[in-house]
């Protein structure tokens, strides 16, 4: 599956080694081999385990229909992921819109503000929110000092906290694809709409917005995929009370040692993400990522 042509070609004999194609496959071989043995094989084992541990069959999958705690966790995961995606897209759209309509200099500064958080450790970012949001945290202290509230608000260890942290993490990942799509929109279309008598809002709603939708949908699928399997931020800001699938899997393995359930949930996650990726690849050309096309 992973290497349809490679082994066949290298087996084809020394004479072929001289041919250019064979030599280029030799360059690809180390990475392909590493990935095949140490990445795809372990993932294949997870899928295999989901139907063989503890006993062969689909018993693990039957839990999806029968276990209330798994259903509750899946529902929490879906709800938080959807809300995070919607909020992220809304905020990302505003930033991307301002980015394409800014001078080169302002753009550079805005980009700095978008890219620096992207590369700062996710743990550090979750820790910063932890400091700000906890009961004795800076936000509650400020709110109480100014008399907005008398008692501290519950901002952490619930879905509010998880979502604040997640939106903060996902925003740069939402802004970049929307921006790259908006950049390709021909500004003359909007000028034409305005020239034909459309109001500013009308030109935005009927011309710019539809043209920018592919970027929004692409970014949405991407953010949703990352949200579904996100571990660090939900685990730290959810504090074990708001349980999403990644942390649930971790608990199954490292604390209660139920390999069957954990690998079944991992397989479900993998399948859902596979379907979403297939949708994404119909929508945007993933090869663009490599500078092609």
């Amino acid at each position: 599956m992973t290497a349809p042509a490679d082994p066949a070609r290298s087996r084809a004999g020394r004479s072929l080694l001289a041919s250019p194609a064979a030599r280029y496959w030799l360059l690809i071989a180390p990475a392909l081999l590493l990935m095949g043995v140490f990445y795809f094989y372990p993932i294949g084992r997870v899928l295999w385990m989901s139907v063989t541990v503890p006993a062969a069959g689909f018993d693990n999958y039957a839990l999806l229909a029968s276990s209330a705690s798994i259903q509750r966790m899946l529902w929490t995961t879906a709800r938080i992921s959807v809300l995070t995606t919607v909020l992220t897209l809304l905020l990302a759209y505003i930033v991307a819109y301002a980015l394409v309509h800014s001078s080169a200099k302002a753009q550079r500064w805005m980009f700095l503000g978008v890219l620096v958080p992207l590369w700062i450790s996710v743990l550090v970012r979750a820790f910063a929110w932890f400091v700000l949001l906890r009961r004795e945290g800076l936000i509650n202290a400020a709110l109480m000092a100014t008399g907005v509230t008398d008692s501290p608000l519950n901002l952490i260890w619930n879905e509010t906290g998880v979502m604040i942290g997640m939106v903060h993490y996902m925003l740069p990942l939402g802004i970049l694809p929307i921006f790259s799509n908006m950049r390709d929109i021909d500004q003359r279309c909007i000028a034409a709409a305005r020239g034909l008598g459309a109001s500013r809002f009308e030109a935005f709603r009927r011309v710019f917005l539809p043209l920018s939708l592919p970027g929004v949908v692409g970014a949405g699928i991407l953010v949703f995929i990352f949200s579904l399997g996100f571990f660090v931020t939900p685990a730290l800001l959810g504090g074990g009370k708001t349980l999403m699938i990644a942390e649930y899997i971790k608990v199954q393995i490292l604390e209660v040692v139920r390999w069957g359930v954990a690998s079944m949930l991992a397989a479900v996650l993998l399948i859902v993400i596979g379907v979403l990726l297939a949708m994404l690849s119909r929508l945007v050309n993933l090869r663009k990522l490599f500078g092609a096309g």
Binding site: M35, F38, Y39, F40, Y41, P42, I43, G44, R45, V46, M49, I225, L228, G229, F230, F231, I245, A246, I249, K250, I253, W259, A262, S263, A266, L269, L270, I273, L277
Partner: peptide, 17 residues
């Protein structure tokens, strides 16, 4: 794949391996 597949899925497999 390693960017798109959640690390938790891979962690499970590599842990077993």
């Amino acid at each position: 794949a390693p960017i798109m597949v959640p690390t938790i899925v891979y962690a499970l497999g590599i842990y077993q391996f």
